[in-house]
Computed example of a mutant assay.
Amino acid sequence: MLRQANRTLYIRIISVLSPLTLLLAWEFLARIHMIDVRLFSSPSLITSSFIPLLVSGELLYNTAVSVQRVLWGFLAGSIPGIFLGISMGLSPFARSAIEPMIAATYPIPKLALMPLILLIFGLGETSKIFTIGIGVFYLVVINTMAGVLTIDKIYLDVAKNFGASRKNFYLTVAFPGALPMIFAGLKLGMGMALILIVAAEMSAAKAGVGWMIWRAYDMFDIEQMFVALITLSCLGYLFSLILDRIESWVLPWKQEL
């Protein structure tokens, strides 16, 4: 038990020291002029720009706007993705009918669809949520289907022999059995959501972290651009921690491996 506690402590220390070491190296290289601060700035200059944005509330407001869009888009893509992925995993007919369409449309860059999405949904919130949702959907549905297909066939046979209904197949066999792969898809989907929110806010928005990046580019404000980029990376890390915590609660046995 003590050895496990020490191992956990070491892992946490390393997780803190690794980004701190990177920041110190970045600042050192900027101070000795090994990197051009006009293009790559430095942690100290970024911090001096970060504080006014934080105190004025501008950063918090734009972050809150982006988080709201990400969460709605994540839910809009993940919920139907889980349901359809389970259906495709359980039914060969559904899989043969839908999988070719997913395989054909998945490689299309989601950013290439932005003009069409804007034409259909306009410049409001719906277009941004749909852009995020469609990116999340593919990753979740593919991983969910793969998770169902990896379930040992004996569990499906036992459920069938006991006369399990379609609802029971979904809720007591397929969904629990596919949960590890579902969480893998959700984590990938959240990363995709943060990528797409930037693109969505760059093209048609008046607020958000992506809008901040585009405005900073127009003004050649490198420090503000890095503040927005670091905010996105912090959001990605925070969402990853939340999903990991939910996964450890839902799948406690996985943490013991």
Rank of each mutant, 00 (worst) to 15 (best):
M1Q: 13
R3Q: 05
Q4A: 11
A5P: 01
N6C: 05
L9P: 03
R12Q: 13
I13W: 07
I13T: 11
I14G: 11
I14C: 12
S15H: 11
L17G: 13
S18I: 07
P19N: 02
P19Y: 04
L20W: 06
A25L: 15
W26I: 14
W26L: 14
W26K: 13
E27N: 08
F28T: 14
A30L: 03
R31M: 14
H33D: 05
V37S: 04
V37R: 09
R38Y: 01
R38G: 10
S42Y: 12
S42R: 09
P43I: 01
P52K: 12
S56E: 10
S56P: 10
E58H: 11
L59S: 08
L60D: 05
N62W: 05
T63V: 01
A64D: 02
S66N: 10
S66P: 07
V67A: 15
V67P: 04
Q68A: 09
R69S: 01
R69A: 06
F74M: 04
S78G: 08
S78C: 03
F83N: 14
F83Q: 14
I86E: 07
S87F: 02
L90D: 09
L90H: 08
S91P: 14
P92M: 03
I98D: 11
E99I: 00
E99L: 11
E99Y: 08
M101E: 09
P107L: 11
P107N: 13
L113G: 10
M114L: 13
P115T: 04
P115A: 02
L118A: 05
F121M: 11
F130R: 06
G133R: 10
F137D: 15
I142Y: 03
N143Y: 03
N143G: 07
T144R: 01
M145N: 11
A146Y: 03
G147P: 01
T150C: 04
T150Q: 15
K153I: 05
K153E: 13
K160C: 03
K160M: 01
N161C: 00
N161W: 00
N161K: 00
F162D: 06
R166K: 15
T172D: 15
A174I: 01
A174K: 12
P176A: 02
G177A: 12
M181K: 15
L186C: 02
L186H: 13
L188H: 03
L188I: 12
L188P: 02
G189E: 04
M190Y: 04
I195Y: 09
A199F: 01
A199Y: 01
A204N: 09
G210V: 07
W211V: 08
M212Y: 00
I213N: 06
W214R: 08
R215T: 15
F220W: 06
F220Y: 13
Q224I: 02
M225P: 07
M225W: 03
T231F: 00
C234I: 14
L235F: 06
G236R: 10
L241I: 06
I242C: 10
W249V: 02
W249R: 09
W249Q: 01
P252I: 07
